[in-house]
Simulated scan of single mutants.
Amino acid sequence: MAVLSCVIIDDEPLPKALLQDYILQTPFLQLTGVFSNPLEALAALQQQPADLVFLDIQMPELNGLQLKQLLGNHCKVIFTTAYPQYALEGYELDVVDYLLKPISLERFLKAVAKARERIAPVPEKTAPFLLVKTDGWTQKVNLHDLLFAESLKEYVALHTVRGKIMTLQSIRRLEEVLPAEQFVRVHKSFIIALSGMEGIERNRIRIGSHYIPIGEHYKAAFMDLIARKNLL
């Protein structure tokens, strides 16, 4: 899953703190800057652009509409404002989305999902299988056979339709090589195949006879993914 760098520009402390909290709950976002002064933010972004900017409109010295024009296409922008009258002008500036304060987590997740679709590069074609080392030899694991992966300290258990395979590697490394459109991290110790998911019960996912926990850190992004893809 590609990680997007993001910056908050807002002169109001409470909305700024709320956005920080939402970003920390979203696995594919990384907060790289928080600014109250739009001129300072402009200087920083000219030196090092971010993938995504959460930009307030009503600010002293330089408003968000002016700042967006100065930024050009170097960063994608989501406007965050209490004033709906700027929506049309905002969309004419080709912003990703326009969020009205107070911003709910659900609405925030929809906006950043749109941003990810516009920013993240097209995934490279991946082989339909993994090659993993186990018991002194290299074994081929077809991706369509893989139901979920479970971290067991320095090992990972690959649960497939044919049985369990133990391999010496980290789940983080496995997450990097598995295609993001087919597999998703739902817990610090678990990656699941979306195609193998049979249901969700409270905070766990049913795959065959197994129940996979959904970690609090991953829950919001996972539920948003399920809603967008209409998987259940």
Rank of each mutant, 00 (worst) to 15 (best):
V7T: 11
Q30M: 01
F148L: 10
E106R: 14
L71N: 03
L168M: 13
I119E: 06
G136E: 14
E92H: 10
L55E: 02
T26S: 10
Y91V: 09
I207H: 01
S170I: 13
P84E: 14
E117C: 03
Y86A: 02
F79C: 12
G64Y: 04
Q58A: 11
S209P: 03
V96A: 10
A87M: 10
Y211N: 06
Q46E: 15
P13K: 13
P179K: 14
A41R: 07
I212L: 15
Q169F: 04
S195I: 08
P13Y: 03
A127I: 01
V186A: 14
Q48E: 15
D97Q: 09
T167H: 05
F28I: 12
M166V: 13
L45F: 00
I200W: 11
E198I: 00
I205D: 02
M59G: 01
E201C: 08
N203C: 09
V156Q: 11
L65F: 13
K101I: 04
L109W: 02
H210D: 15
A227L: 00
I191S: 06
I57G: 07
E175H: 14
C6P: 05
L130F: 10
P123R: 14
V77L: 05
A193Y: 06
D11E: 06
V34P: 00
A82N: 07
E40R: 12
L143Q: 03
Q20F: 00
F108A: 12
G90N: 09
K133D: 10
D135A: 14
I78E: 02
I171L: 15
A2D: 04
N73S: 08
Y83E: 10
E40T: 05
A50Q: 11
C75T: 07
N230M: 15
L232Q: 06
L130K: 04
G196E: 08
T81Q: 13
S104R: 11
L143K: 08
I78A: 05
A221W: 08
Y218P: 08
L45N: 01
L178P: 06
E106N: 15
Y22V: 00
Q47C: 05
G163H: 14
Q48T: 15
H74W: 00
P84N: 07
L42Y: 09
G72D: 02
A82K: 12
C75F: 06
K101P: 10
K76E: 05
L130C: 04
P128I: 14
L93P: 07
S151K: 10
F28H: 05
A157L: 14
S195T: 10
E150P: 03
E216Q: 06
A113C: 00
M223H: 11
E154Q: 15
I212N: 07
M223N: 08
Q169D: 12
I23D: 04
L231S: 12
T32D: 03
C6Y: 08
S195C: 04
T126P: 01
R118K: 03
Q46T: 12
E216V: 12
D10M: 13
K110Q: 09
E89R: 08
V161N: 00
L178E: 07
A127W: 01
L232E: 03
L225T: 07
M197F: 11
K110H: 08
G163F: 12
K219L: 01
K133V: 05
E117V: 06
L31K: 03
E92W: 09
A149P: 05
F129D: 06
Y86I: 01
I226P: 02
Q85V: 12
L174Y: 01
R107Q: 07
M1P: 09
A87P: 06
